[in-house]
């Protein structure tokens, strides 16, 4: 069942080994959201007024 996917600057689903570097992700529902996405390198980004969602929240987030 699709319940929700949070909006965001960048949302990754089942995506790995990517580089997300030096982006501004302000005033988003989520600055950056990961679902089942591992080994991504994230550095130099700004998230003011945005939440950060990590894979640890996966059990609470049902995408499909």
């Amino acid at each position: 069942m699709l319940t929700a996917a949070p909006p965001g600057g960048v949302e990754l689903l089942e995506s790995h080994d990517n580089h997300i570097v030096n982006n501004e992700m302000m005033r988003n529902g989520q600055g950056l959201a990961f679902f089942q996405s591992n080994n991504n390198k994230v550095t130099g980004n700004t998230y003011h007024l945005s939440q950060m969602l990590s894979a640890e929240s996966l059990s609470e987030m049902v995408f499909w």
């Binding site: 909006p7 965001g8 600057g9 960048v10 949302e11 990754l12 689903l13 089942e14 995506s15 790995h16 080994d17 990517n18 580089h19 997300i20 570097v21 030096n22 982006n23 501004e24 992700m25 302000m26 005033r27 988003n28 529902g29 600055g31 959201a33 130099g44």
Partner: peptide, 21 residues
């Protein structure tokens, strides 16, 4: 989402302003 990324590996997203989404 500014950018939605699905089943994607070894890729780069930089530097951008992805605010206000």
């Amino acid at each position: 989402d500014g950018i939605f990324v699905y089943h994607t590996v070894d890729s780069k997203f930089r530097p951008m302003d992805l605010s206000g989404n």
